[in-house]
Amino acid sequence: MSGKKVLIVYAHQEPKSMSGSLKNIAVDVLQKQGCNIVISDLYAMNFKATATRNDITGELCNPQHFNYGVEAMEAYKKGCLCEDILGEQKKVQDADLVIFQFPLYWFSFPAIMKGWIDRVFVQGFAFDFPDFYDKGFLKDKLALLSFTTGGTEDMYSKDGVSGDIRFLLWPMQHGIMHFCGFKVLAPQVSYAPEYGTAEKKRGMLESWAQRLENIWNEKPIECTPPWYFD
């Protein structure tokens, strides 16, 4: 798929981690396909995770009562968001596929990645009302969550102590990605790599590489309640 553009939003501080290795595999496989790869290495960038009034470079609409969502939306329309947000939004606009590579923290994204989402996917850029879910502004793009867990696969099974992993994916895949219009590909879950053998870790990397060989032929998952909760 020569010419396809891929943004990898990456959140891990250790290059030798499983997350780092999965990111490197994605770069290697997709570049060999002729894809153009851009990486947002959030820790290396020292990306600011907190959404504050400093994100708006122009005059506030209502300086007496600050509302981040409203102010960020208006600033986006006026081109008055700070440069780091505008730069990341440009990367998203250019991408055909956005891969989020991260370790699962407390059933969710690491804070730095959640902060990236909070600041980049503002109203007016990623969605509006009633332009959300299937009408979200990123509807022509694919999104994929690739993450590692501390718990084993059994723990995240239907009868496991942590519950079916689809439940914790609901707010991330449906409430964020689908809400912004993304067509969501099935997640790539690498279970408990810290406790696995070298052979098991190798298998995780090989599985990811094999999947990426045909990633452009995959069909998005159903981001609807019945798919998750039936």
Rank of each mutant, 00 (worst) to 15 (best):
K32Y: 04
C35K: 04
N36E: 08
I37C: 09
V38G: 06
I39T: 09
I39E: 09
I39R: 04
S40T: 01
D41A: 04
D41F: 01
D41T: 03
L42F: 00
L42N: 00
Y43Q: 01
A44I: 04
A44M: 04
A44V: 11
M45K: 10
M45W: 02
M45S: 06
N46K: 05
N46P: 01
F47Q: 04
K48G: 04
K48C: 01
K48A: 12
A49M: 05
A51K: 05
A51F: 02
A51P: 01
T52Q: 03
R53P: 01
N54P: 08
D55P: 05
D55V: 02
D55W: 00
T57V: 14
G58W: 08
G58T: 07
L60N: 13
L60V: 07
L60R: 09
C61G: 15
C61Y: 10
P63F: 11
P63E: 06
Q64T: 15
F66M: 14
F66A: 06
N67Y: 13
G69L: 11
G69R: 02
G69D: 12
V70N: 11
E71F: 04
A72H: 10
M73I: 08
M73Q: 15
A75G: 14
A75I: 09
A75Q: 11
Y76F: 15
K77D: 05
K77W: 08
K77G: 14
K78N: 05
K78L: 03
K78C: 00
G79Q: 15
G79H: 12
G79V: 07
C80T: 15
L81R: 07
C82S: 15
C82F: 00
E83I: 05
D84C: 08
L86I: 00
G87P: 00
E88V: 02
E88S: 05
Q89M: 06
Q89T: 13
K90T: 12
K91N: 09
K91W: 07
V92W: 00
V92K: 00
Q93R: 12
Q93P: 03
Q93S: 08
Q93I: 10
D94S: 06
A95C: 02
A95K: 03
I99Y: 11
I99L: 15
I99V: 09
F100I: 07
F100H: 10
Q101D: 11
Q101Y: 10
Q101K: 12
P103M: 13
L104F: 06
L104K: 05
Y105G: 10
W106V: 14
S108E: 12
F109H: 14
F109M: 13
P110T: 07
P110L: 01
P110F: 04
I112G: 09
M113A: 09
M113L: 15
K114E: 15
G115R: 08
G115C: 10
G115F: 10
I117V: 15
I117K: 14
D118I: 06
R119F: 06
V122I: 11
V122M: 13
V122T: 13
V122K: 13
V122C: 15
Q123F: 05
Q123N: 14
F125I: 09
A126K: 05
A126P: 02
A126R: 07
F127K: 03
D128N: 14
D128L: 09
D128P: 04
D128T: 14
F129K: 12
F129R: 10
F129N: 08
D131W: 03
Y133K: 10
Y133I: 06
Y133W: 14
D134P: 09
D134M: 14
G136L: 08
F137D: 01
K139Y: 11
K139N: 15
D140Y: 02
D140N: 14
D140K: 13
K141L: 03
L144V: 02
